[in-house]
Design a protein around this nucleic acid. Sequence first.
DNA 1: CTGAAAGCGCTTACAG
DNA 2: CTGAAAGCGCTTACAG
Lengths: 367, 367
Amino acid sequence: MAKKPTIRDIARLAGVSKSTVSRVLNNSANVDPFTRERIQRVIEEQDFVPDRTAMHLARGDRRLIGMLLPALWSFMPEIIRGIAGVVEENGYEIILYSSAGHKDFRSVVDRVLTTNLTAGLLASIHTHSPQHLITLSRSGLPVVIINLTALRLDSPWVSVDNVGGARLATRHLLSLGHERISFLFPSPDLPCFHDRYHGYCQALGEAGIEPDPILALYDDGSAVKCLREIQAMSAPPTAIVVGNDYLAYSLIMELGKRGWRVPEDIAIVGFDDVIPPYQSSIELTTVRQPFYEIGQCAVEMLLSLLDPCFKPSRNWLEFAVPSDPDWQASSDGRAWPSCHIQLPPTLTVRNSCGSGRHYSRSIQRET
Amino acid sequence: MAKKPTIRDIARLAGVSKSTVSRVLNNSANVDPFTRERIQRVIEEQDFVPDRTAMHLARGDRRLIGMLLPALWSFMPEIIRGIAGVVEENGYEIILYSSAGHKDFRSVVDRVLTTNLTAGLLASIHTHSPQHLITLSRSGLPVVIINLTALRLDSPWVSVDNVGGARLATRHLLSLGHERISFLFPSPDLPCFHDRYHGYCQALGEAGIEPDPILALYDDGSAVKCLREIQAMSAPPTAIVVGNDYLAYSLIMELGKRGWRVPEDIAIVGFDDVIPPYQSSIELTTVRQPFYEIGQCAVEMLLSLLDPCFKPSRNWLEFAVPSDPDWQASSDGRAWPSCHIQLPPTLTVRNSCGSGRHYSRSIQRET
DNA sequence: CTGAAAGCGCTTACAG
DNA sequence: CTGAAAGCGCTTACAG
């Protein structure tokens, strides 16, 4: 009880060499069954747990994966669940690096690099911060980026197909008869929202509708600003594609305060499918991101980078959206590690858009 | 670039021994300034980063702290922020063990113990699961429990003062003139809710009101069940202390659907102060848990356990609520590590209780 | 101020 | 099937 027993103690107590103990620890063949059992008994008696640190040093491999995250709320927990499962199955553990308290990524990236504890890094980054990404990719540490779709990025990344998701949402509204549809940017500068806007424009284009710039609205987070602009319009939209669910919920709340009914007076589609933990007055129709799968795919990509023999749990390339030109070139499987993967979103239809019937009425009111 | 340089390479390139390189790495005195500078230059040229794993092995200390969490949503991110700051300042890193995907703590606790990577563990546990806590505390791994107030627990723990918080909430309602006040259990079996109920009873007792068992309601999560029971009462409550914020928000939503106004028809107080990420129709008056501080206090407690010389950033014992009998005995500071600490909550008054005036009306309606 | 040597707790050819 | 030895990349008395 005084000190933790080491492999040397076990060897002594079992009357064998350290090598043999090591062999039973690692389940290698070529150990006499009787000897093995004797050693195992001693191990149990002594409550011996081998020192991982020493194992890693001797073997020359780390079994730690860094997870660099801007924050933990919203959909992050679900992504982490996806990551954690795979990490655990493969005998790795997660080191959590949160940049929540820091002004920028700089200091955290430095810490990841100088502590040099991890075999690889999973990083979720919202903004383009070229210098840090470059620092990272140059460091030689294998990195997979989560949820940032920058095609020109050297590092491999995994993300939802933002363009396709917004297209889905917009098509849904079009199919319900809407023709005057607004797009709400939750913030002006994040790349993902521009991708979503792009998808919205694509869907309108398919329907022969020219996107009206007046209908592209930028919010400051409260939904109040957008709503004022809409109310001031001579031809207000009958439906809105909102850049993310938080803004969608805020918007619905604000609409309610002003006596507008959803979906009767205006239809709303969100993006993310982050269900509030408590009841809400209106159930949001929204684009569901496959967060769990994004997490899974990202770690498996990283594990392939670390170990070429690693077998992913599923063929992500087949599952992915073939929107990336690089993708084609790498479909032989070998180039997988340097790949960019976009996972397909789905539309979750609830009741913030109503049925088509509503909207023919709504539209009549407009004309 | 081929292989990562080691301390041996640096020594060779700088024409010194490994010992000397190690000395400059660790900023020890007794190194010739010129030699030091030369070595530092080589280190930079080679982009040398010492291997943490080897350092820890040689020094015999781990600088990793395990964080065992049931889930990541709700207030966990805030607790983690508190933990992360302290961990970082002290040169530790966090290993994240999530039990989210697991049926119980058993397998995760085993993993923490057998991988044996961490110097100590921070564990947040909701339910009483004696066997795992005992396994943990017997293992010899220093552990601090977060947010479980079980006075008989061997392990040290940090939590909010649940009794005091509910007392605060109930007194607030009493001061506004309410006399018929309900308590809502979000779930029947979690110890914290029983503590909160206890605080509610205390406050009523102080006001000379006998707690009416009819008014203690158990919910199944949706708030619908409670609401039906309330509507069926001959003398319904004019105010409700809800066991946590999620249930409070759900309740407000359900009340709205039935045409009851908050706070005009009924006053609501929550517990936690978990603000929804988007606008809500009513701003909840609630008991704020000092999550950030709980996280800070818990790590600092753990760090004191690991290193008797560790100086906490603040005197937590002074800040704490002296409700624990052990607390008295340990106020000399020496026994701090084996201590149980309850941090004081505060009342955040918003508008779900209204002002006193409202309630005199409300009460008149009752009589 | 500096280096040679032993050591941290494990693994892994190598020889038997 | 097993053990002696060298090694993983660092630290730390010890001697000089």
